[in-house]
Write a protein that binds this DNA or RNA. Structure first.
Lengths: 246, 246
DNA sequence: CGCCGGCTTGATAGACCTCAATCATAGTGG
DNA sequence: CCACTATGATTGAGGTCTATCAAGCCGGCG
């Protein structure tokens, strides 16, 4: 079990380049771009490692490669997964009073971390960059709210179906038709993300498999026969299978 | 039952002034400030009215006075309250594919609406304003995530207690000791916000009253004896009252 | 090949939802 | 000013879904 040490993995130099490409694009003047990059430190985390290991200030984190879960400790041994993050995401990790947020690597993870204050001070010099960050944070807010819809009034079946649909979009890049994805997270992570217990997650996978909506191979590979059918399941199917028109 | 018409209420001229004070402060140069304000249109909504009545583009909305619920239609007759908004809040109302977000007035409501694109284009000229908007959106994201914690692994009792604590902070301005608040929302709104049914909400209020933690007067007035005790209830008390040390 | 951690499956209990009826409150009109 | 009415809130009974507890079962890794 890896601890919160940043291992002996070399801080992948490509990470910073990806940050330039994704966030700075060609929006920032070379001078400012250099200064922004100088603020960041690249990290390489092994599966299971947490970031920040220990932190006193707010951080902005760019995920260059890999997958991570963004978690909050609710109370003793009760963690809540707030979001899954993948390559290209720009996450704001604020410190909290009651137990902090953490970014935990699900796979080998390349990231670049910036102190929030200085980064924003500097970005102010280059409004296009600031706006890009704003746009991303508005999208994150949108996703967070959409996720709240899932947690609100939905059954376990609906939550899992919805989860698979959104993972297909983010991991498989597909929103319709068939799709095969390799889930980087465990059943427990999925449960913590959807407000379900691990057993319930497992049962729903079994039911979806029995219903012919998905196939599974090993622990991680999920083949979805038809994303539209799954989306329908996630959307409004409550007990329609109990009331067929006969 | 008021429809989504903006009534015959006069568009309170003070709204724009409040917007200047809260968002522009003295950060923007007079020229830009004028242009920003020119983009906005002030509205006055009666209790129950919805905004936007019909909309094709993303909006940024400043709440000048009153209380509102920010909702999303999950499906037929299943609405989810994503957040409650009060005077001073700056909300981003994005359009969605599957049923849009709406801001619904809980009291008489004064607001100023801006088209998101043009507003941000202009704000880019004045980075301090853009940053202020960013900071607010990061805070909204933080609140949204904190709220997800509530919806995640918490019991009805804990959710209601937590709701009352956070309303005391936002409405009563208190985070400790006793507090009296007047809730602008119905039991149904509270339920839609926490993922609970109206009956469950009611039962929890009754239980809290029986437990001496709160007093109620009429439908809306809640007197909290001790916010710290209530926060404890929201935090980790699971079944501690079932296991006293005897 | 054998172990360990994660996953699946089963049985049970409890929390919350649903349906149904009554009550209270706040707004309305006589 | 008071009675009336409609809407929201409360209370009760019963059912469903999910959490919890308890075994086994795989799958990946040494």
């Amino acid at each position: 079990m890896p601890m919160t040490a940043e291992s002996k993995l070399s801080p992948e130099p490509g990470s910073m380049a990806q940050f330039r490409k994704a966030i700075l694009r060609n929006r920032a003047s070379p001078g400012i771009a250099e200064q922004l990059c100088a603020l960041g430190t690249a990290h390489m985390l092994a599966k299971g490692d947490a970031f920040p290991p220990c932190e006193k200030s707010d951080q902005l984190v760019f995920v260059a490669d890999g997958a991570a879960k963004f978690i909050a400790e609710a109370e003793a041994a009760k963690t809540q997964v707030l979001a899954f993050q993948f390559a290209g995401d720009f996450v704001s990790v604020l410190r909290r009073r009651d137990g902090d947020f953490q970014l935990v690597a699900l796979t080998e993870l390349a990231l670049v971390a910036f102190p929030a204050g200085p980064f924003l001070d500097l970005a102010q010099e280059e409004p296009t960059v600031l706006r890009s960050v704003l746009t991303r944070s508005l999208h994150a807010l949108h996703r967070s709210r959409t996720k709240m819809l899932r947690l609100g009034h939905k059954s376990a079946r609906q939550r899992i179906a919805d989860f698979l649909v959104s993972m297909s979009e983010r991991l498989g890049g597909r929103i319709t038709g068939p799709c095969e994805i390799t889930l980087p997270m465990t059943r427990k992570d999925i449960g913590d993300s959807l407000g379900l217990e691990i057993e319930t997650v497992s049962r729903q996978f079994t039911d979806l498999r029995d219903g012919g909506l998905i196939e599974t191979q090993g622990r991680s590979i999920v083949r979805i026969a038809d994303l539209d059918a799954l989306a329908l399941e996630a959307g409004q199917t409550q007990k329609s299978e109990i009331h067929p028109q006969n």
